[in-house]
């Protein structure tokens, strides 16, 4: 095992920074694609936190969990993100057909 260590606080700080940027995008953008991309960024920052904690807990002596558990969570998050992206983009295509744009500010009626 390598002797040089990365403090897991660094990984968590990067995760928090990416999550903040993603939240800003979701709240401030109005283009649907940009909101979706910011959402993917938030999902990935959560993945980074999973990885950091998995490494930390597995490194402790007598750990009940291995580093495997966190990695499996990341795997499942990626799978769910793929499903979510497929359905969300199909919704945008349907929305574009009705409204001619995917500006979320223009979707303000509950019917068509």
């Amino acid at each position: 095992m390598n002797a040089i260590l990365i403090p897991h606080t660094w990984v968590l700080a990067l995760s928090a920074a990416l999550f903040t940027i993603g939240t800003l995008g979701v709240l401030l953008r109005r283009n649907g694609i940009a909101i979706f991309l910011s959402l993917e960024l938030m999902l990935n920052s959560a993945n980074l936190a999973f990885v950091a904690f998995a490494m930390t807990f597995a490194a402790q002596p007598g750990a009940a969990v291995s580093a495997l558990e966190g990695q499996l969570f990341v795997f499942f998050v990626i799978a769910v993100a793929a499903a979510e992206a497929a359905v969300g983009l199909a919704l945008y295509i349907a929305l574009h057909r009705v409204k001619g744009a995917i500006d979320v500010d223009r979707v303000n009626i509950l019917r068509w």
Binding site: H8, F19, Q71
Partner: peptide
Amino acid sequence: PLIAISLLTPATGAVYPGALETG
């Protein structure tokens, strides 16, 4: 989360880079 991270002690939470047998 940044405040929560700053409360963690870095000494207990080192991540081991390099070879990981479960990776």
